[in-house]
């Protein structure tokens, strides 16, 4: 079974070309992104093709995901937040499907690579900053100046607010990355115990029952974490977007 790190290895299938000094290759990561894209596209497009008034099972899933994200946005960023609906929807569905795909045996988890989560978090961050300045101009900076604070500690509070704002993409991305990474390593280690003990004869068979049970439980937990982390990423996106929409608090 071996190394629990092995599953995070990027495998290059073929090289496409070079972008400056960087090699651009089609890798297992890209493959799983493509699969995730295909799954989302199939889920959203095929069952809704007939636009049935009474939805079938798959169409209900498409509608449920739509309404779930719409209500998440409305409750945390208000109705104006709906202009970011496609963004939040794409983020949620992409992360969700990619996380779930990563639970399959031999599959690769795209979100277990920090560069991916950082890119997504920065996408949200810059969307907030750019839209905030575009919509409110310099008044967007009022986000960092809470009202009702005495003037002599205002610089300190503003500095803390700025740090809080700037550290968001870090926690936003590290949270998703660390959850997926840690979960998959734990899972792999316990599964490794099972095969190790199972190979150690009759006594090992009994010994393997406990880690096996734990592996099953962990898999269920990881399933929950995969969904939860996609949801957390989406709702934090909504909350950050809310700052761009209403910087005055």
């Amino acid at each position: 079974m071996g190394d629990p790190i092995h599953q995070f290895e990027i495998k290059k299938f073929f090289t496409l070309g070079h972008l400056g000094p960087y090699e651009i290759a089609f890798t297992n990561s890209a493959l799983f992104m493509l699969i995730a894209f295909a799954i989302v596209a199939l889920l959203m497009l095929v069952p809704t093709r007939q636009r049935a008034l009474v939805p079938g099972r798959l169409q209900s899933i498409a509608e449920l995901s739509y309404e779930f994200i719409a209500s998440t946005i409305r409750s945390s960023a208000g109705n104006e937040g709906m202009r970011f609906f496609p963004l939040v929807f794409s983020l949620f569905m992409f992360i969700l499907v990619v996380n779930l795909l990563g639970l399959l045996p031999y599959a690769f988890t795209v979100t277990s690579h920090i560069i991916v989560t950082v890119a997504l978090a920065l996408l949200v961050f810059f969307t907030v900053v750019i839209y905030g300045f575009y919509k409110h101009g310099l008044r967007f900076l009022r986000l960092f100046v809470p009202s009702g604070i005495p003037i002599y500690i205002l610089p300190l509070v503003t500095a803390i607010e700025v740090m809080s704002f700037l550290s968001r993409p870090i926690s936003h991305s590290v949270r998703l990355f660390a959850n997926m990474l840690a979960g998959h390593i734990t899972l792999k280690v316990f599964a490794g115990f099972v095969t190790m003990l199972g190979g150690a004869g009759i006594l090992g068979w009994f010994g393997a029952v406990l880690p096996l049970g734990l592996t099953v439980a962990l898999t269920a937990l990881e399933l929950l974490v995969a969904v939860l982390q996609a949801y957390v990423f989406a709702i934090l996106t909504c909350i950050y977007l809310n700052d761009a929409l209403h910087p005055g608090h």
Partner: peptide, 14 residues
């Protein structure tokens, strides 16, 4: 070394 590829693919697919 793998960052560039991942970023490019992520950008395209996203």
């Amino acid at each position: 070394e793998t960052f560039a590829s991942q970023l490019v693919w992520l950008a395209i697919i996203f």
